[in-house]
Nucleic acid binder design. Structure first.
Lengths: 342, 342
DNA sequence: CTGTTAGCGCCTTCAA
DNA sequence: TTGAAGGCGCTAACAG
């Protein structure tokens, strides 16, 4: 059995209330008393029971982070920012991997609600179907009754009436910008490898790509749009399929850097040089972008900053339903160049 | 204010005790009563207060994971395994980034202890000084009094008398094996870029390197050992320093894959081809090992499996102080080859 | 400045 | 099968 406050009180020869006061430092306590209590605490190796405390305060010092997969560098980056900012207000972050499964996501939400999390941050793209949207809105409302603040991070709000702050990434803008970069280099036949179907991020990035092409009056060839997910494997397979089908393209724009890395390796395996034969661009500016050779041209997304922003919103003023859009920026490296003449 | 069990009871027209019984399903309850209670729970969107429950049970369903940095792929891999295995027993994982700082690590330990974590898993290399060892042993004993199980993961036990299970990685063996691979290819002048000084993992990997050289009767040149940390940056700088000093070497063995990736890029920048001019090998077999070109020869460490093992030990039979050593295996890819003749 | 008292929300006897 | 009562460990009034 762990040591309790009462035992500390007994050893120090004071009342439990006094021990509590010493521990919290909210009320005046005589110096000599304080010393005796602190001594007892040390001798007994006492640690306050966070649950007993949470029971009184209806707060827990816990921040829930629900994401697809913490080992994915995109999520890891954001989680890192959240963790850092949360720790600064001495709150614990609880990271929950939902594996992209809505059921699991909701299960974690309930768990975190049960733990009276101070805030829950949902990170990453969301499914786009109406059913999910309705369920998410209901959940969001439920969180309020438990006093748990909710922040969406990297996904839009499920609806006007859903409470909670939002940190959005300018996916469409970033995607348009990097497409523009390719077009300005002279590329016209650009292949696009998407993220997983039916997710907000996938849709926004693809939309940016199409918008930029349209702006330049470049006709989009739907045969050059290949569906994938956010993995290296998807990038490899997508390029292999394109090549096998004999498609003609001078550049590949990938939904993220992992996909781009896969694309590069498939191109190399097929004997195509990057960027001399084919340019490749990614998205997110993950650490791995500079491991790939040639180093990837990509869109920088300030992941840690996004995480910190989420915490800021979570514990900022309660009332407004803030939406912050994080800007992105094209980073030109070595994987893109003008297409070969001809 | 969140809904409480009492309110549910009132709405269902039963006593709080009955609601509790329905919720936990431990005692017989009439079917009709159960239905009414479940209806009330749904209508009120009730979620049990995990703290109140934890107060009774002296358990929380929380597993603490303390590591350097969750965005580092090595830690991310292990954390993923822990998370998965913990979730299977419906426990929440709390991931805490200590940034390699012993103070912070201990602070998290206290926090987790306060939350009555069911188990705490310390992941990654530990400092090697005596002071840390003593402090860690004391902490480990303290955890016991709170009923928190402790597992060390990727680090040795701080001492014979320290309680807790251990999942060790065979760092020395793996390092010796990959060194052997290089020597057998014909390399004699092998540079070694270490991890951060004074950490168990760094020491073990370096020891394996030296042992393998000694086994082959190859004389180790201390000028070829460069100290770094586990980052790309360190790999780059180490190779630059080696090159600047005009050292003669035909292979670089890196403390991990990130360091190896950095080494490769520095060599390329200096116009040395990998593996034609210089072979490079890494450690850990991180996902990024196949983004690097040429793909890295490395030592596979089954990160997720290690994480799962840690949970298994944490919640397995209480008594024995188990030590499990996870074997490693050399993975030969494209970054190593026989040295150029001459 | 310090002790006493009354719960926070839930579960677990003990009775009925 | 159900209800009433006590207490888990702590803190916030309220006295003193």
């Amino acid at each position: 059995m762990p040591v309790t406050l009462v035992e500390v009180a007994a050893r120090a020869g004071v009342s439990p209330a006094t021990v509590s006061r010493v521990l919290n430092g909210n009320y005046p306590v005589a110096e000599s008393t304080r010393q005796r209590v602190e001594k007892a605490v040390r001798e007994l190796d006492y640690v306050v029971n966070a649950h007993a405390r949470a029971l009184l305060h209806a707060t827990s010092g816990i921040v829930g982070v629900v994401l697809n997969d913490a080992s994915d560098p995109f999520f890891a980056g954001i989680a890192r920012g959240i963790q850092g900012a949360a720790a600064e207000t001495s709150r614990l972050s609880v990271i929950c991997n939902s594996e992209g499964d809505a059921e699991q996501e909701f299960a974690f939400l309930d768990l975190l609600r049960g733990h009276r999390a101070d805030a829950v941050i949902l990170v990453g793209a969301a499914p786009e179907d109406e059913e999910y949207r309705a369920a998410a809105t209901t959940r969001a409302k439920g969180m309020l009754t438990t006093g748990t603040r909710m922040v969406l991070c990297g996904r839009p709000s499920p609806g006007e009436d859903a409470p909670g702050h939002v940190v959005e990434i300018d996916n469409e803008g970033g995607s348009a910008a990097i497409t523009r970069h390719l077009v300005e280099l002279g590329h016209r036949r650009i292949a696009y490898v998407t993220g997983p179907d039916g997710r907000t991020t996938t849709t926004a990035r693809l939309a940016g790509f199409r918008r930029a092409l349209a702006d330049f009056g470049v006709e989009a060839d739907e045969n050059l749009v290949v569906h994938g997910d956010f993995s290296r494997q998807a990038g490899r397979e997508a390029v292999e399929r394109l090549l096998a089908a004999g498609r003609d393209f001078t550049a590949v724009l990938a939904a993220n850097d992992l996909v781009a890395a896969g694309a590069v390796s498939a191109l190399r395996a097929a004997g195509r040089s990057v960027p001399d034969d084919v340019s490749v661009a990614g998205y997110d500016n993950l650490p791995t972008a500079v491991d790939v050779w040639p180093n990837l041209t990509t869109v920088h997304v300030p992941l840690e900053e996004i995480g910190r922003k989420a915490i800021e919103l979570a514990f900022g003023p309660a009332d407004p339903q803030t939406v912050v859009t994080i800007p992105t920026a094209v980073v030109v490296r070595d994987s893109t160049a003008a297409p070969a003449a001809g």
